[in-house]
């Protein structure tokens, strides 16, 4: 469904995304993990049209979408959410979601009705008349998701929708994401909450210093020495193996 080939993005002297290659198959949940500053959000932004890649190609269902504007990308069925939530603060939850619905629905009343349906699916019916500014963190994260979903996407790019949520809220949103996939939407997500990554994803890519250093099922990736070193520092992988085999005390 989504193919990224040799994508690079440079900011001055910093190579934020370095020759990234990845594939998101239709109907799958694929995750992108990596330490802070690895370039995950930059990669998302380059895919969704918010940044022009310096090199490489992005195709959606076989169609080249490299360098298109974000609204064009959205109309073709790929929509992203923001890590730092971007609600229309002065509008109600209903009107926020309706803005997304307007991508495919012209009439105001129809868009609002569609917004109500989406809100019901995500368990937000109670909040419809509240201004977005009055929502809790969990509510805002969910609103990001609802708005994106209202555009009728085929592929959703979710940027850390679980950050800042407590355990119950995470369970809730994991259930919601599964439901969205079951409804036929492919999902590509950036996440730091490992338990969610492990339980949700069919496939995981690991980004470090802008480059994809590992890929596979979540289990494979988690035991990859390169990944452990990327997260815990040079030598960490060996240290852990030593510890596991010798079951000895911590070595300096």
């Amino acid at each position: 469904m989504l193919e990224v080939r040799n994508l690079s993005k440079r900011f001055g002297g910093l190579l934020a995304v370095d020759d990234a290659e990845l594939t998101v198959p239709e109907g799958a949940i694929v995750s992108l993990i990596g330490p802070n500053g690895a370039g995950k959000t930059t990669l998302f932004a380059a895919i969704a049209g918010f940044l022009k890649p310096d090199a490489g190609r992005v195709t959606l269902s076989g169609e080249d979408i490299t360098g298109l504007t974000p609204h064009d990308v959205c109309r073709r069925g790929l929509v992203r959410t923001f890590q730092v939530v971007q609600p229309f603060a002065n509008l109600t939850v209903r009107d926020n979601i309706a803005v997304g619905a307007h991508t495919r629905i012209r009439g105001r009343a129809d868009a609002r009705r569609h917004a109500e349906t989406i809100a019901a699916e995500l368990g937000m019916s109670e909040m419809l008349d509240q201004p977005a500014a009055a929502l809790t963190v969990a509510g805002r994260k969910r609103l990001e998701l609802a708005r994106a979903l209202a555009t009728g996407p085929t592929l959703l790019l979710l940027d850390e929708v679980m950050a800042g949520l407590n355990a119950t809220e995470i369970e809730d949103i994991v259930r919601v994401i599964r439901g969205i996939r079951e409804a036929g939407v492919t999902i590509f997500l950036i996440e730091h909450v490992m338990q969610a990554v492990m339980s949700l994803s069919d496939r995981t890519y690991v980004l470090n210093n802008g480059a994809i250093i590992s890929q596979g099922t979540p289990g494979e990736v988690a035991s990859d020495p390169q990944v452990i070193e990327a997260y815990l520092g040079h030598g960490a992988s060996q240290a852990i193996t030593r510890e596991a085999t010798a079951a000895g005390g911590p070595d300096a």
Binding site: P70, H71, C74, V79, Q86, F88, A89, R106
Partner: peptide, 23 residues
């Protein structure tokens, strides 16, 4: 109209509006 809703969305947050398909 949709145009009005999209105009207000652009006022509130242009990046979010673009992400949601608004030119």
């Amino acid at each position: 109209t949709r145009f009005g809703a999209q105009l207000v969305a652009v006022r509130e947050n242009e990046d979010a509006a673009e992400a949601l398909g608004i030119d």
